[in-house]
């Protein structure tokens, strides 16, 4: 899961080297904390959160395979 979010975020931002993902695995949910360069916030959020929503949708699908819920938090 961590790798997936990293790949997606790195493909979207201008500073891929500043992308980091912290994965916190729970019993039923996986929390993924995504950090990017402040300049890149818009690149992972998008207008009206459209990009963030797409990332969450893909994460949700991948987590569902493992019977889990994915929570992607974009951290300021």
């Amino acid at each position: 899961m961590k790798e997936l979010i990293e790949l997606l975020a790195k493909a979207l931002v201008d500073h891929p080297e500043k992308v980091s993902v912290n994965q916190i695995a729970g019993e039923k949910a996986v929390i993924l904390e995504l950090r990017v360069d402040p300049e890149d916030m818009g690149k992972v959020i998008g207008k009206q959160g459209r990009i963030a929503k797409a990332i969450r949708t893909v994460a949700k699908a991948a987590a569902a395979r493992e019977g889990k819920r994915a929570v992607v938090e974009i951290i300021q």
């Binding site: 797409a54 990332i55 893909v58």
Partner: peptide, 9 residues
């Protein structure tokens, strides 16, 4: 919805 999200990304 997942296909559309992937396509957008």
């Amino acid at each position: 919805e997942t296909l559309d999200a992937l396509q957008y990304l």
